[in-house]
């Protein structure tokens, strides 16, 4: 299991890019943290989610 935004999901073995493609997140409006570190955008395709990873997708909304 991979914990993504607090929810355990059966995503181990998939890449971060594959996970994101299965969601409604707009890739231009997010930052992704994995086990306490930011994942560079260029590495979403090669980042394979591991059993026990804790991920947070920060989804930005407009206004300021």
């Amino acid at each position: 299991m991979v914990k993504i935004n607090g929810e355990p999901l059966d995503m181990a073995g998939k890449t971060l890019a594959e996970y994101l493609a299965s969601t409604k997140y707009d890739p231009m409006r997010i930052a992704v943290e994995c086990n306490g570190e930011i994942v560079p955008k260029a590495k979403y395709g090669e980042t394979v989610l591991q059993e026990g990873d804790v991920i947070e997708v920060v989804n930005f909304v407009g206004g300021g």
């Binding site: 707009d26 930052a31 920060v58 930005f60 909304v61």
Partner: peptide, 11 residues
């Protein structure tokens, strides 16, 4: 103000 600009700066 814009969500895309926020994400760009943060990343």
């Amino acid at each position: 103000d814009r969500a895309e600009a926020k994400a760009m700066l943060v990343n």
